[in-house]
């Protein structure tokens, strides 16, 4: 029996050495190239072109002159335009502001929820986790429309409050930053809870007891033990909320309307209404860099933590 197994293992090893391993490793590289690097380079190329009324609506990167010389044409006007027209700077800042505040709200809401889930009995734990994941089984768009129904002037919440007699006239909630916050926090809070849960699950309860035993009150225990030990979860959850929230398009478009400036909407307008592909591409490239910076900070912190 063991000889068959070892022969089989040797065979596997041989196969792995003769190419399988490199193929397996190669697949994700191909995937990344085709679906990330190539599109990125195309968008980068468009962002460096000039807008034309043609099809495609931008100038080519390489052109043959009449003398038969290949010329490279790089236009940086789109980027300087983003800087000169203060609409873009304002929109970037506003997007970052909204996603930062949303991330903090998600953290304030998600942290106690994750903690409560970790501390509950195994059966309750599974039910609670299911309830966190369950909304993903319905369409995201449908859920945003549901919020429109809830927040509208004649919507469920206003009708209920009027019926109760708490208010005389409906409160305006739709098409405001408030509605956008509600939408983003509602949509992204599971992305905060799940990494926090995964992190807290590993937390040893006896550490809390040890802290209490050494004279730490519950608040001190939280600040000196729980919080530092859950910081990787906080960081991971915050990035999972912050990054998609910054570029969010559907929520600000449907719940914020024209009143809330977010970069996703501006990009959409440049692309679909103005047909200015190069500016839209530049907006996308700048957004990418805005989001890469927190990612790099995260990586840096993580590598430092695993060292020390």
């Amino acid at each position: 029996m063991s000889s068959i197994l070892s022969a089989y293992a040797a065979q596997l090893q041989h196969r792995a050495q003769s190419g399988w391993r490199s193929i397996v490793v190669f697949v994700p590289y191909i995937w990344l190239f085709v679906f990330f690097l190539a599109p990125f380079l195309i968008v980068l190329k468009i962002s460096l072109a000039e807008s034309l009324i043609a099809s495609p609506p931008f100038s080519p990167l390489f052109e043959w002159t009449e003398e038969g010389v290949l010329t490279l044409q790089l236009v940086f006007d789109n980027y300087s335009y983003l800087w000169e027209d203060d609409l873009y700077v304002k929109t970037y800042l506003n997007s970052i502001k909204i996603s930062t505040i949303s991330t903090m709200l998600c953290l304030i809401l998600g942290y106690p929820i994750a903690y409560a889930i970790v501390r509950s009995s195994p059966t309750t734990k599974n039910i609670l986790l299911m309830m966190i994941i369950l909304p993903f089984w319905t369409s995201f768009l449908l859920r945003v429309y549901a919020w429109m129904g809830l927040l509208a002037d004649q919507g469920t919440i206003n009708s209920f409050l009027v019926w109760l007699g708490v208010i005389d006239a409906p409160i305006r909630m739709m098409y405001s930053e408030f509605a956008v916050y509600v939408g983003i926090v509602y949509t992204y809070v599971p992305f905060m809870i799940l990494p926090l849960y995964a992190n807290m699950e590993k937390l040893d309860i006896t550490l809390h007891e040890a802290a209490a035993d050494l004279g730490a009150r519950p608040v001190t225990t939280f600040l000196t033990i729980t919080l530092p030990l859950t910081s990787p979860g906080i960081l991971a959850g915050s990035l999972l909320v912050f990054i998609p929230a910054t570029g969010e398009f559907v929520i600000p478009d449907l719940l914020g309307g024209g009143n809330v400036l977010m970069i996703g909407r501006v990009l959409y307008n440049e692309f679909n209404s103005n047909h200015d592909w190069p500016v839209a591409a530049a907006v996308a490239i700048v957004l990418l860099f805005v989001l890469v910076i927190p990612m790099m900070i995260y990586q840096h912190v993580q590598s430092r933590e695993s060292e020390g």
């Binding site: 006896t206 550490l207 007891e209 040890a210 802290a211 035993d213 050494l214 004279g215 033990i225």
Partner: peptide, 16 residues
């Protein structure tokens, strides 16, 4: 526990 005049050494040590 945080007001008792005793301290404990845990089986798992529970070092931070």
């Amino acid at each position: 526990p945080y007001e008792r005049p005793v301290n404990m050494m845990f089986q798992s040590y529970a070092l931070f």
